[in-house]
């Protein structure tokens, strides 16, 4: 039995003049949680759409359980949670779960699932009477109810409070333990760190890098330093600690791998330095930067 549940091989996809995927490769292995990361417009949604059979690739091969994903038999083995979807508000949670459970050959018992996801108190309420977070929980339930071998989760914890998010993460870990595979797209670095076995980073329709969370973490050791200074931007840009610098009105936005030495030098040169903020670069930002470097390397 193949260990690869889903794969994109050399896939190209264009929308008019925009190239969404440009020779993209990705494979999802049995039992892993693969987190797909990347800035907006990187091609994450397109990649997922192709794997779900919602679109067809212009070039390359898309497989889901060794079949084209348009085949319903392939999709009977997956569960899907999408980011933007309005479910029929007049139906109750239980009715929605029962309806979707009916699409699968061997789904979970709806009552057992309601219990597992702690949806008991909202099970018989109409969907449109639920809070945003509760709706996300029901949508997660719909992705899970068919007892899928592979789940696609798109921003599953948006709108959840801390407790609900922790609870969802716990269920996800249990599922992984039971052998379920998951493709997670998220903007939250912490979420990927907390759950992912493997991270794939996309930018501009290509795979930039993929590896374990620890491997990836090295790429995001850089920090963003933001401050107001009377030093000239060109001077600071020339310092070896500075990877890049941009001016936003009167604020300098500096990306660096060595925040502490940089700050010491800044204070030395400009004692009136004010309004300092230091933060870890977002994963997406870091990799946008990474691809910039890649592109420049490729050019030179």
């Amino acid at each position: 039995m193949s260990n690869t549940l889903a794969s994109l091989t050399g896939v190209r996809k264009r929308y008019g003049k925009i190239t969404a995927l440009d020779g993209f490769d990705l494979s999802v292995k049995r039992g892993e949680l693969l987190s797909l990361l990347g800035p907006n417009g990187a091609g994450k949604s397109t990649a997922i759409s192709l794997l779900l059979g919602l679109q067809s690739a212009d070039q390359g091969e898309v497989r889901l359980f060794d079949r084209p994903p348009q085949e319903i038999d392939a999709r009977r083995r997956i569960g899907v949670m999408m980011q933007e979807v309005a479910l029929p508000g007049v139906m109750t949670c239980r009715e929605l779960l029962e309806q979707v459970a009916g699409y699968y050959p061997l789904p979970y018992e709806v009552d057992a699932l309601i219990h597992r996801l702690a949806l008991g108190n909202i099970a018989s309420r109409r969907y449109d009477k639920l809070s945003g977070g509760q709706k996300r929980q029901v949508q997660f339930g719909l992705a899970l109810v068919g007892r899928p071998e592979l789940m696609f989760l798109d921003e599953p914890t948006v709108g959840l409070d801390v407790q609900a998010r922790e609870a969802l993460w716990r269920v996800i870990r249990e599922l992984l333990h039971e052998g379920c595979s998951i493709v997670l797209t998220t903007h939250y670095l912490e979420e990927a760190e907390a759950l992912a076995d493997r991270v794939a980073v996309m930018a501009r329709g290509k795979l930039v890098t993929s590896g374990s969370v620890d491997e990836i973490r090295a790429h995001v050791s850089r920090k963003q330093v933001s401050l107001v200074s009377k030093l000239s931007a060109d001077t600071v840009r020339g310092w070896p600690e500075v990877l890049s610098l941009a001016m936003e009105r009167d604020r300098m936005q500096i990306t660096t791998r060595a925040a502490e030495p940089l700050l010491q030098r800044l204070f030395r040169e400009d004692p009136q330095l004010a309004d300092i903020e230091v933060r870890r670069a977002g994963l997406a930002e870091a990799f946008t930067e990474l691809t910039n470097e890649n592109t420049q390397e490729a050019r030179s």
């Binding site: 899907v80 999408m82 979807v85 479910l87 696609f152």
Partner: peptide
């Protein structure tokens, strides 16, 4: 427009 049709298509809703 609101994505339900897309979700149903991704799910194994019978043809």
């Amino acid at each position: 427009e609101q994505g339900l049709l897309t979700l149903k298509q991704a799910l194994p809703q019978p043809p």
